[in-house]
Amino acid sequence: MIRFALVALLLPILQTTPPKPPTDAPRIPDSVFVDAEPADAKCVSVVKKDAKKGDTVVIQAKIGGRAEPFVKNRAIVIVADRCMKSCDQIPGDTCAKPWDYCCEPPESLKANTMTLQFTGEDGKVLKTGAQGVHGLEPLALVVIEGVVTEKDDKGTFVVRAKRVYVEKPAEDEGASPNDKPKVDGKDPPKDAPKEAPKE
C-alpha cells in the first residue's frame, strides 16, 4: 500500500521531468574552441577593410553590436571591434544592455561590427544557438580564426569560424577585461580607428 502511494506520488514528478534533447541535435563542435589564442589577431575594422572573400583571417573582437548579439536558434554571433567603447566602459552609463553600443553612431557601428558563423560539415549554419557555449556571452572577448565567406562594400562581413579562443574573465574584480581594449595584443593607440574607415 505504501509502495503504491509512493509510486502515485512520484509518478507526476517523473512525468514532469523535462525531456532530454535528442542526441543528434546540432551543436557547435568542442574542437572549435581552443585554449591558446591564435596569433597575429587584428581588429575587426582593419580586417573588414583589408580582407577579401575566401581569406583566412584572425580577428580579436568583443561579442556585441546589437541588443541581441546571438541569434536564438542559429549559430550566428555579432561581434564588435574592441576599440569601440561598449556602454559599460563609459563612466556613468547605466545602459541595461551595454553590449548594444547604443552610444555609437550607426556608421561607426556598421564599420566596426561583423558576423561570426559556426557551420556544419555541409557548410550550412548550425541550427543551434551559440550563447553560453564555451563562455560565449555578450561582452566576452574572443579571438577568432576563420574564413571570410561574405563581404560587400555596404558593411556586410561574415566569417565562418574555424577556431575560437574565448578570453577568461579577469581574476581581479577591479579590472574588467573590457576596461582596457587591446589592439593586436597591445594597448590601443590614441588615434585608434573608431569611425568608419575612409575608403
Binding site: 541581441e68 541569434v71 536564438k72 556598421k110 561590427t113 558576423t115 558563423q117 560587400d152
Partner: peptide, 13 residues
C-alpha cells in the same frame, strides 16, 4: 533573424 544578423548593411533587427 539570421539574415538580419548576417546582412549588417541592412542595419535592422
Amino acid at each position: 533573424d539570421a539574415l538580419v544578423a548576417t546582412r549588417l548593411d541592412l542595419e535592422s533587427v
